[in-house]
Amino acid sequence: MNPEKPRKPTAAEKRQMKSAARLYAVQALFQMEASGQAFDRVRSEFETHRFGAIYEGDEMAEGDSTLFARILEDAVIWQAKVDQATDAALLATWPIDRIDPTLRALFRAAGAELLNPKTPPKVVINEFVDVARAFFPEGKEPKFVNAVLDHMARSFRPEAF
């Protein structure tokens, strides 16, 4: 008997899984802040109950669990540094604690990934602008996110520009 080997994801499927991991990371960071739940609990919940889950007939995307965990952990570890960089990119009269909590979670996730040299800054910016479009499809937030993340990327990784 020849057991079937699991099919390896295509390059497009891998990109989709990474995009989903970024979206899930923003949702998880939002949930951690809103509920006060710990990193391990939220990470486990997302990996167990959201990645690829089916709700009311709709299937949730499968996420890259390694990238998801890395972004989440780095966002927790580097939160103060990321928040300072976000504050520097925002107007002085609009500190990070006054912005929408979804945007705050997005900046923390994106900032954590910008601090990791594995992903080029332009990829991080494009991916998180897409995440902003998912949360704010009709608003000006995606342009705002692009500007803030560009400023943060230049601050964290000037050699990449």
Score class of each variant (00 low, 15 high):
55 Y>M: 03
5 K>P: 06
29 L>Y: 14
19 S>K: 01
57 G>L: 01
49 H>S: 08
72 L>R: 02
62 E>C: 09
126 N>G: 05
39 F>G: 09
138 E>N: 13
33 E>I: 05
159 E>I: 05
68 F>S: 00
28 A>Q: 00
124 V>G: 05
113 E>S: 10
20 A>E: 00
9 P>C: 12
39 F>H: 14
9 P>E: 04
48 T>F: 15
8 K>E: 03
152 M>E: 01
149 L>Y: 10
18 K>L: 13
149 L>P: 00
115 L>M: 15
68 F>K: 00
149 L>T: 12
150 D>W: 12
54 I>L: 11
75 A>W: 03
19 S>P: 01
69 A>G: 13
114 L>C: 03
57 G>M: 02
51 F>P: 00
122 K>R: 15
57 G>N: 01
64 D>N: 05
11 A>R: 07
13 E>F: 09
51 F>T: 15
38 A>R: 15
14 K>G: 12
55 Y>T: 05
63 G>R: 00
20 A>R: 02
95 P>K: 08
15 R>G: 01
142 P>A: 14
96 I>Y: 07
122 K>Q: 08
87 D>S: 08
103 L>H: 07
149 L>H: 03
155 S>T: 11
27 Q>N: 10
96 I>E: 07
110 A>R: 01
18 K>I: 08
160 A>W: 15
111 G>R: 04
52 G>E: 06
109 A>N: 04
161 F>Q: 08
151 H>L: 02
107 F>H: 04
82 V>L: 04
2 N>M: 12
49 H>E: 05
72 L>D: 03
156 F>A: 06
112 A>T: 06
65 S>I: 13
152 M>D: 01
134 A>W: 10
121 P>E: 01
52 G>L: 09
59 E>H: 05
58 D>A: 03
152 M>L: 03
21 A>T: 01
117 P>Q: 14
132 A>I: 00
133 R>T: 00
115 L>G: 07
127 E>C: 06
94 W>N: 09
80 A>L: 07
152 M>K: 02
86 T>S: 02
88 A>W: 10
111 G>F: 00
91 L>M: 14
102 T>V: 12
133 R>H: 07
150 D>H: 13
90 L>H: 09
135 F>N: 14
108 R>H: 14
41 R>T: 15
9 P>Y: 05
78 W>Q: 12
100 D>P: 08
148 V>F: 01
45 E>R: 12
160 A>V: 09
84 Q>E: 12
111 G>Y: 04
63 G>L: 01
144 F>T: 11
17 M>F: 03
111 G>Q: 02
6 P>K: 11
147 A>G: 14
64 D>G: 06
105 A>R: 07
36 G>A: 11
19 S>Q: 02
